[in-house]
Nucleic acid binder design. Structure first.
Lengths: 256, 256
DNA sequence: CGTCGGGTTGATTTACCTCAAGCAACGTGG
DNA sequence: CCACGTTGCTTGAGGTAAATCAACCCGACG
């Protein structure tokens, strides 16, 4: 089965069979981590990056007085700890929300990848850039949208991201393992207010939440209600001229 | 005179004379843009990246109904539009706050740089990663800090960043060309509330604002008042083992 | 000399927060 | 298999940080 990291990159990137094999090879070194495991720890220096293969994780920063802010959520196909190769100490933690399957990539392997497979390096850089764009949108959420829009926006974003890696059902159903406290810490709200706002979203027939599953009921209505603008996800399938640029950037020596 | 882009990277990176010359060479192609100029436009596809050499710019996202969120501020030594090489349309705009001096770098030159000077490419990637870390901290600000902390935090961050490129005076004075509306859009507040909170910061003797200049009066007091934690800036001077890693990642063919 | 961008201030409203409690589902251990 | 702590969800009451609305002031500038 093709790994989610391959699935995700196919959206923007014509990968050669060899490149796909290489990525799948990385993904083959599966490690299972229990729910709650921290695989990057704020303030510490870490020794590897990780590709998410299954499950949910979150990136968050902790303040000294206990307040915390969740930066974003990591879904299958996302990378964690890419910056550990650049910074001496991590400025955030990455924690498993559910049991997760990851593939660790040592720094040595990373630099090798960057050296010998510059197209894949560019693809990984693309992933990091997309993540940055998602975090920026969360900043827009928290800075300029109200609680109702923030929550709706997060649901909409999540469906789109999960669909990009074939992890959402046809009927709009998807795994949603976040509790209301996590939502609060992600959206800059209190869990009480999250609760009341979720109630409203349910009452208005926009989303449905049952246990650890969620479902977007009326896509168009939700999109309009929260003024969703999907450009920042860059999942629209990039135009040919851009795909060509990726190709051009290949160095001689990488298989043709 | 060494360009700010070189100054900034020296903090984390042992650059060879040739690499410094190359960066300074990029910086030699100066272009002046007037205050208010958009050099990256949300929704459009752009043809170059830019190194900031002088002046202030800001990155922001605009919502359809007019609300906007400023993501971060670009100071001398920062890069703008790095992702235009990866995405078909920009998800944000970059606008000059003051008249700015930039050096445009075409996509062709960028890919050449990545191909032939992988250490410099890594340094530029470092810059992008640091910017991501700053945006993430702004998310923490807006999500989990009150107006007073947000403003104080921004002042503190700004001094540190300006000092890293030798653009702040010894007495804590620095150029600060943002009006209160810009502060509001950056911090997720109304300009009225920004005004009142600034008054409080002044009254308490933490900062001084005169025209387009600002000054941090009591560094320690401000740091404590807003619980500033500087790790996310990664400006502490990276330890030797990390600098060595950058060196190791050099490919044969790059000088020395 | 009018207009415009920017700062300041007051009065009022509101979208959230905090505190507090109750309840259901669940695992754990005795 | 019952007592229990725990975790997560829900609801109410009351409080507050910050928004909104509305002036007014000032200096710059054409």
């Amino acid at each position: 089965m093709t790994s989610p990291s391959v699935l995700k990159l196919r959206h923007i990137f014509d990968m050669s069979p060899e490149e796909e094999r290489l990525l799948d090879g990385i993904a083959a070194r599966k490690v299972e981590l229990p729910k709650g495991a921290d695989f990057v720890v704020q303030g510490e220096s870490d020794e590897a990056a990780y590709v998410m293969l299954a499950g949910w994780a979150l990136r968050h920063r902790q303040l000294a007085d206990g307040r915390r802010q969740i930066l974003n959520f990591l879904l299958p196909g996302d990378w964690a700890g890419l910056t550990t190769i650049l910074f001496s100490t991590a400025d955030h933690s990455v924690t498993a929300v559910t049991p997760v399957v990851v593939a660790p990539v040592s720094h040595a392997d990373m630099t090798g990848l960057f050296r010998d497979h510059s197209r894949l390096a560019l693809a990984i850089y693309w992933t990091a850039a997309q993540e940055e764009a998602v975090v920026a949108e969360h900043l827009v959420d928290v800075g300029r949208r109200n609680a109702y829009e923030r929550l709706g926006h997060l649901f909409f974003e999540t469906v789109l991201r999960l669909e990009a890696v074939s992890q959402a059902g046809d009927d709009g159903t998807f795994d949603f393992p976040l509790n209301q406290t996590a939502l609060a810490d992600a959206l800059g709200l209190s869990h009480v207010h999250v609760n009341r706002t979720l109630k409203r979203l349910r009452r208005e027939g926009l989303v449905e939440i049952e246990g650890r599953k969620a479902r977007v009921l009326d896509r168009n209505k939700l999109e309009q209600a929260v003024h969703f603008e999907s450009t920042y996800l860059h999942l629209g399938g990039e135009p040919a001229w851009l795909r060509r640029r990726f190709a051009r950037s290949a160095r001689p020596g990488n298989q043709g």
